[in-house]
């Protein structure tokens, strides 16, 4: 059980580091979504299914959606101004 926990923790940290270090905005948003996914598995293993469900819904589903709306607005603003 500890091995599984450790592997998923390594995945989470790797994705978070990638999200911080990459230059491409789209990639950063996707990597943040992957971080949320692995974090929700970690919450499941720490016996907190409600937190895991919220993390899966907000962290990797809706945040991606809202970030892409924001990215579209940013692009349009750059074009006009």
């Amino acid at each position: 059980m500890n091995i599984i926990f450790l592997i998923i923790a390594v995945f989470t940290v790797a994705m978070a580091l990638y999200a911080v270090m990459t230059k491409d905005r789209t990639m950063a948003v996707l990597a943040a979504g992957a971080t949320g996914l692995f974090a929700s598995i970690l919450f499941v293993m720490m016996a907190a299914p409600d937190v895991a469900m919220t993390e899966a819904a907000i962290g990797s589903g809706l945040t991606t959606f809202i970030f892409f709306f924001a990215l579209r607005k940013v692009k349009r603003g750059q074009k006009n101004g």
């Binding site: 929700s40 990797s60 589903g61």
Partner: peptide, 15 residues
């Protein structure tokens, strides 16, 4: 815990 899998199954598709 299966509920977490169900919620993620719907939302990853939307992402």
């Amino acid at each position: 815990y299966v509920d977490v899998a169900l919620v993620y199954g719907l939302l990853s598709f939307i992402g």
